[in-house]
Simulated assay, not measured.
Amino acid sequence: MRYTIIIVTTTLLSINSLCNAAESETFDYNISGTAVFSNGPPVELEDIAIECAEFEYDCHPFRGISQETTKDGTFFLTIEIDDTYDGAEILLILLGETFVHIIDTNGSEYSDSITKNANIELEQKSQPSPVFTGLGCAGIVFIVAFFAALVRRPIAPSSLQTASAKNSIIVECPLCDGNLESHLLIRHLIVRHGVDVDEAKEIAHSQMKSVSQEE
């Protein structure tokens, strides 16, 4: 009889231990969602991290776990827990903003991994893209330059230019009968016809004298 009691007691203790082990079995708890700015664009390539409230001691094992959002703003955080964490509060931190998530272990009895959705919408707006900022600046510069060109007044010719135009005399080259300005005749004779410098000066002087007499 004594041996029977010992065997039964040992069996019950073993069953209780197995039950406790089953109850404390861990599983993966996944937090999945999409993060967007208040004006709509996704939060691209930014770290989203887990932090804990002041007296939420159950959260401490997960503090600092982080994941970078994708280009479309999605994220996927994984922590390892058991059923005792049900109802625990963790904080999701993204770009300085805090979002509360309550752990819900419902469904863990059917799988060794459960996923809970936690979409995030920030209060802040997205920053303008550098490309569009550059285009905007270029557009402003173009508009300013356009209006500056419209209001620019034409520059009146200087008195020196006017006097030069009035004093410009057209003479005829005696060697090729070409017409050109008087101050270019000497160079023309030397370069084009190979005339000696002194002779070119005399020819030019003679042509200028003839033109003056005609006037």
Score class of each variant (00 low, 15 high):
A200G: 01
K209R: 15
F99R: 04
I79D: 01
L18M: 05
C59K: 08
E199A: 09
N119M: 07
I7K: 10
P154I: 11
E202M: 00
S159T: 01
V197N: 11
A118Q: 09
I140M: 11
A21H: 08
I102Q: 14
F146A: 09
S14L: 10
K71M: 13
S111D: 07
I79W: 05
S206K: 14
T74Y: 06
N39P: 06
V43W: 00
V43M: 02
E25A: 08
I5M: 11
I79T: 06
T34L: 10
K125V: 13
E181T: 15
L92H: 04
S168K: 12
I6M: 04
L185Q: 00
Q124L: 07
D112P: 00
Q67H: 06
A165T: 09
V131F: 13
N20R: 12
I102K: 14
F27L: 03
E68K: 15
F37Q: 11
D47Q: 09
D58E: 05
I79Q: 01
L150M: 09
L160R: 00
I114C: 03
I15L: 11
T105A: 02
S111P: 04
T69K: 02
E44V: 10
F27Y: 06
A22K: 14
L94D: 01
A145C: 11
L180P: 07
G178M: 14
L122Q: 03
S38V: 07
I90W: 06
E25R: 14
S111R: 07
D177N: 14
T105R: 01
S14N: 03
A156F: 07
N179D: 06
E123C: 06
I140W: 11
V131T: 04
R2M: 07
S158P: 00
V100D: 09
R153V: 10
I140S: 07
R2N: 03
S182L: 13
I155T: 05
T10M: 09
H193E: 02
T162D: 11
G136P: 02
G178L: 15
F37T: 09
F147C: 13
G139E: 00
N119G: 05
A204Q: 05
I143P: 05
K71Q: 08
F75Q: 00
G136L: 12
A165E: 11
